[in-house]
Design a protein around this nucleic acid. Sequence first.
DNA 1: GCCCCAAACAACGA
DNA 2: CTCGTTGTTTGGGG
Lengths: 258, 258
Amino acid sequence: MPELPDLAVYADNLMAQLKGKTVQSVDYHRDARLNTSHEELRNSLCKTSIASVERSGKEIAFFFSNNATLFVHLMLFGKFTITPDPVAVRFRVLTIGFGGSLSLVVSDPKDLVTVKVNPIPSSVPDALEIDGTYLRRKVAERPRVRAKAFLMDQAIMRGIGNAYADEILWQARISPKSTVGRIPDHAIDDFLISIRSVLTEAIEEIKRQSPEIISGEVRGFLRVHNSKRSESPTGHRIMKEKKGSQVTYFTQEQVLYI
Amino acid sequence: MPELPDLAVYADNLMAQLKGKTVQSVDYHRDARLNTSHEELRNSLCKTSIASVERSGKEIAFFFSNNATLFVHLMLFGKFTITPDPVAVRFRVLTIGFGGSLSLVVSDPKDLVTVKVNPIPSSVPDALEIDGTYLRRKVAERPRVRAKAFLMDQAIMRGIGNAYADEILWQARISPKSTVGRIPDHAIDDFLISIRSVLTEAIEEIKRQSPEIISGEVRGFLRVHNSKRSESPTGHRIMKEKKGSQVTYFTQEQVLYI
DNA sequence: GCCCCAAACAACGA
DNA sequence: CTCGTTGTTTGGGG
């Protein structure tokens, strides 16, 4: 499942391929997980064109020239495909046909993808938008939450999933089991810097390795959340812990604040 | 900390000593853990007399002739003292002076005692009031709760604490870790019978051993929740498990329903 | 091991 | 581990 950096690159690439294209057809292939009716979806996008594509949290947001918006959350297994032959795509959820016999298909073998037309914008900031004041306020509000759960809580900041939570916490040298309220002030600064640097550098790396990507993940460069690696870049053994189906990778370098 | 049987005997003995006595003074010695103001407390009990004293769950309920009620929960370390010299009692929380220079003092070194004036009566039945229909309904509502947690849940039935939960479960031959929804129907009957018999027999035993008791506990006769014993009355080794600060005593005789 | 509450944890469905 | 929800357990503070 793609996370924030992958999705950021998807957005850029979807925009590069689709900007200015006019919607000719809209087909929603199932009944559920759409915040409105099929008709409303179709009417909202009728004959308009794509103005821009952005990432917002873990969603891809399509902005249309008629001011309609379409937010797609890929969940665990969703995929984007741009193809002249949409019918060939298995597990279609949504097909948008454009002029020039090109279609954007959203597909998902597990049908977990969510699609929202003109949703109310979230009031929760994106992980790349937060500042130190906000971070400290949230830490003060939820002082007893573990650092990893804090990063992954989409009601605190949007976009960070399991893999990048581990990467950020390693970069900040904070143990995932730390209680956020116990992280000293100077380490909160590192925490914020790590959130930004890990995510923005990952975006650059994914662009470098996969300039056209609109589906799939690039994960080989991850420093600790990486089953291929046994040591962090600084030579510490990577430990792995499983809780339910969530795997956490971390090292002893990361300080446990309790 | 006293449990239901101790508290039942306290109530009888407090009533025996205080019934008919007229309140001359009311002093509340701290600010918190009272459901009303100091004034309201004082006004409610002004010049009235004690009509009866009862146990309700883990609280001692004083009923006054003006229809006022006063509920005291001793929590972990609370104590009642009847004395001509209340000032000599350490850690006083509440002092009620009666005619004849006699005072009832509620004290607590940890200040956890709660005091309620004219509280809304609880809708949860006392442990000695439930019947088979109620027990089966609650089991059906919360089938996955562990047997010990079920007995101790004051929202299911009121009055049972750590020690008597162990005693009842041993008497019923049900493991404390059983999931209540898995207890077969015939064993639910034993369960109910054990709740009643363990508690009522304990009340009789405490009365026998300590006819005047209004504070402290009588625990020597407990069959398994008893650090002095290594074997149950039927000769099975008593096992001890600690979870947080809660100690559970049980034996292999107790069937684990899962 | 008193109560309350927040948070953690588990399971499940979509 | 994606989100949401429900139910239960755990841990800290009073």
